Amino acid sequence: MIEQLPTLPAGVLGFRMRDLVTAQDYESVMVPDIEAAFALNPKLRLVVHVGDDFVGFAPGAMWDDVKLGFRHISGWERTALVTDVGWIRVMSSMFGFAMPTQFKLFTNAEFEEAVRWVASP
């Protein structure tokens, strides 16, 4: 499941991933919100929180994530990933440098710091 994060600063879009994340979650929640944000602004600041209640990605969900990232490859200004999920932290540490954005990894306890970092000028 993917939910939009409420009450973020202006210009910051955020999502929380929990339970099992499916391709349908991307298509019904993330894609419309991100496309709407890009229609208003050529650059996007993003917070993604993968909480302790996250159990994994269904087949196809990771591919939708990759497609969404590449569709707007030059539009990602700053991205914060907030998670304590071990394998996601390892993968992000290994491949974060290749993301077309300023990217920073935070723990769940650092959620507020992540939001401040993404929103800062």
Rank of each mutant, 00 (worst) to 15 (best):
Met1Asp: 00
Met1Tyr: 00
Glu3Thr: 14
Glu3Val: 13
Leu5Asn: 08
Pro6Ser: 14
Thr7Asp: 13
Thr7Glu: 14
Pro9Trp: 02
Pro9Val: 02
Ala10Met: 10
Gly11Cys: 01
Gly11Met: 04
Val12Gln: 06
Val12Asn: 07
Gly14His: 01
Gly14Asp: 05
Phe15Ala: 04
Arg16Pro: 01
Arg18His: 11
Leu20Asn: 00
Thr22Phe: 08
Ala23Asp: 15
Asp25Ala: 08
Asp25Ile: 03
Tyr26Ser: 06
Tyr26His: 13
Tyr26Leu: 10
Glu27Asp: 08
Glu27Thr: 00
Glu27Leu: 11
Ser28Tyr: 01
Ser28His: 10
Val29Glu: 07
Met30Asp: 01
Val31Pro: 05
Pro32Cys: 11
Ile34Thr: 08
Ile34Asp: 01
Glu35Met: 14
Ala36Phe: 10
Phe38Leu: 15
Phe38Met: 13
Ala39His: 08
Ala39Phe: 12
Ala39Tyr: 10
Leu40Glu: 15
Asn41Gly: 08
Lys43Asn: 12
Leu44Thr: 12
Leu44Val: 14
Arg45Asp: 03
Leu46Glu: 04
Val47Thr: 05
Val47Ser: 07
Val48Thr: 09
His49Leu: 05
Val50Glu: 02
Gly51Ser: 12
Asp52Thr: 14
Phe54Lys: 01
Phe54Gly: 05
Phe54Asn: 06
Val55Ser: 00
Gly56Thr: 01
Phe57Val: 10
Phe57Ala: 10
Ala58Val: 12
Pro59Arg: 08
Gly60Glu: 14
Gly60Ala: 15
Gly60Trp: 14
Ala61Trp: 10
Trp63Ala: 08
Trp63Cys: 05
Trp63Val: 08
Asp64Pro: 03
Lys67Gln: 11
Lys67Ala: 11
Leu68Glu: 02
Gly69Pro: 05
Phe70Gly: 15
Phe70Leu: 15
His72Gln: 00
Ser74Cys: 00
Glu77Ser: 14
Glu77Met: 12
Arg78Thr: 09
Arg78Ile: 09
Arg78Leu: 09
Thr79Tyr: 05
Thr83Arg: 04
Trp87Phe: 13
Trp87Pro: 01
Arg89Asn: 00
Met91Thr: 02
Met91Asn: 03
Ser92Lys: 03
Ser93Glu: 04
Met94Phe: 13
Met94Arg: 07
Phe97His: 12
Ala98Asp: 04
Ala98Tyr: 09
Ala98Asn: 03
Met99Glu: 00
Met99Tyr: 10
Pro100Ile: 11
Thr101Asn: 12
Leu105Trp: 02
Glu110Cys: 05
Phe111Ile: 07
Phe111Met: 08
Glu113Gly: 10
Val115Gly: 03
Arg116Leu: 10
Val118Ser: 01
Val118His: 06
Val118Thr: 01
Ser120Pro: 11
